[in-house]
Amino acid sequence: MELFLQQVFNGIMFGSTYAIVALGLTLVMGILHIPNFAHGHLYMLGGYITYLFVATLGLGYWPSLLIAIVVLGFVGIIMEAVVYRPLNEQPHINAFIAAIGALLVLESAVEVIWGPQGMRVPNPYPHTFEFLGIIMSVQRLLVIFGAILLIVLLHLFLKKTLTGTTIEAVAQNREGAMLNGINVNRVSSLTFFISSGTAAVAASFIAPIFVISPAMGAIIGMKAFIIVLLGGMGSIPGAIIGGYFLGLIESLGGGYVSAAYKDVIAFGALIVIFSIKPTGLFGKKEG
């Protein structure tokens, strides 16, 4: 029972990370129809920026997190403008290939600067305690509740602010929005800023708990991609539910079945689900 609860707790924590990362990706894929396969690498870079400011420059955890958001936001903007915008009119697959190029750039840039080995961000809240037989730490709780707060804030932004509704307008009808005088390029930049910024938050939250490495972007990027495709491109509830769901099954599967094959679950589920329903669980047609 205790093992079960512990795995559920860990699952929710991983799920929080997956949910935020998938949320950022679903915005880009649903609104801009860009298969940003390098999203996981933006997350990875976010972890390293936090590391740079916390560990190397000795800044506090929270200021570093804010800086990481802004830095990643701008990396996202640059990526959209340089990599994806020129490919707007090209076949989808070209953007996908460009994304692979972009992720190779990000991964090797981090390797050039910090080396291929793992790094540890000092934990600001290392205090651990036991609750219902589950070992928790303040930082782990921060991951969980920080994610919830972020999701709520993002929801309010998209539904209640003028800028947010503009983004939704572009999502629904790109040409129509353009005719109504909405600057689509600016919306693209903004969407990328939010998407990359949230990835940085997810990375900064979880970086003090685990080792960060240049290779971590690839796997989480693929998982986020899978969550988005299964949950429906552009579907925010799909990304959130999918994220938590994946976190939980991975954690339980890893605890009870096999730790080595933990990652197989997500990828296997994807293949099985797509072979039954080729457009995903909440299948919309591909844009």
Partner: peptide
């Protein structure tokens, strides 16, 4: 092929990539 090719575009790319990752892990 038959299950994977029911998908199109980037869906096919990600399904085949997922298969590749499974093979690699195994």
């Amino acid at each position: 092929g038959p299950p994977a090719l029911r998908t199109r575009g980037s869906y096919f790319a990600i399904v085949t990539l997922a298969f590749g990752v499974i093979v690699w892990i195994v």
